[in-house]
């Protein structure tokens, strides 16, 4: 019997190694797997490369992971936020490496990894600082930049509901990076609020088919507003 459900956050993040590349879902507040991030902090893996859209705000979640000095490198499109002082401090002190990536390239490089694409050409970023040194090509009169996939050892994603085969549905704009990241990691770990029986999720509406998911863990919904 296939059962991807694990009974604790502790078991969900077991085996994440030092030096691992870890994708973390979320855009702003929605979709950030805060409980899995907290479990990763407790688990203790260090020297991580984190692939994510924002660099965390305040002192919780990703910001707490950064503050605990577990992150060597961040691959990210928008680290600067109103309350991103933990990242800002590490960056200014030269204590974290940043690869700044246009958001669509971040999504597509992740998607490419998950889809077995070796590289792709995109017009995004042509002749800008963020494409410096990259191979370019003129295609049908437009300039394109060659971009390579981003593979990960682990993806941490937040979904709304899942089943024991790992099928997932999301909630509203919390979907964001979850579905593409789930495809691109050797081990995809999903936190969900609800685990349902096989067949209970509408097969026409499943967003992430279970083949992309390794572990599912149920968490309790926080009080209203905290998720933001």
């Amino acid at each position: 019997m296939i059962n991807k459900v694990v009974e604790s956050l502790h078991k969900a993040v077991a085996g994440i190694r030092d030096g691992a590349t870890v994708m973390v879902g979320g855009f702003g507040g929605p979709g950030i797997p805060n409980e899995l991030i907290d479990a990763l902090i407790e688990q203790g893996a260090r020297d991580l490369t984190i692939v994510t859209n924002n660099a965390g705000s305040g002192e919780t979640g990703l910001a707490a992971l950064l503050k605990a000095r577990r992150v060597r490198k961040l691959m990210c499109s928008f680290p600067r936020q109103a309350n991103s002082h933990i990242f800002d401090g590490l960056y200014r002190a030269g204590e974290i490496e940043l690869e700044l990536i246009p958001q669509g390239n971040l999504a597509e490089r992740i998607r490419a990894a998950g889809a077995g694409i070796g590289a792709f050409y995109t017009r995004t970023g042509y002749n800008t600082e963020l494409a410096r040194g990259k191979e370019t090509r003129l295609i049908d009169g437009d300039h394109y930049v060659l971009e390579y996939p981003i593979h990960a050892d682990v993806a941490l994603v937040k979904a709304e509901k899942g089943d024991r085969w790992g099928n997932l549905v999301y909630r509203k704009a919390a979907r964001n990076f979850g579905p593409v990241m789930a495809t691109a990691a050797r081990c995809t770990i999903a936190q969900v609020y609800q685990i349902v029986e096989l067949g209970a999720l509408d097969p026409e509406a499943v967003v992430t088919p279970g083949i992309f998911v390794t572990r599912v863990v149920r968490i309790t919904r926080q009080a209203e507003g905290e998720a933001a």
């Binding site: 928008f78 680290p79 600067r80 200014r92 700044l100 246009p102 958001q103 669509g104 390239n105 995004t124």
Partner: peptide, 9 residues
């Protein structure tokens, strides 16, 4: 602190 988001896309 650099940030680009979706502007280039």
């Amino acid at each position: 602190i650099p940030a680009v988001g979706g502007a280039m896309d």
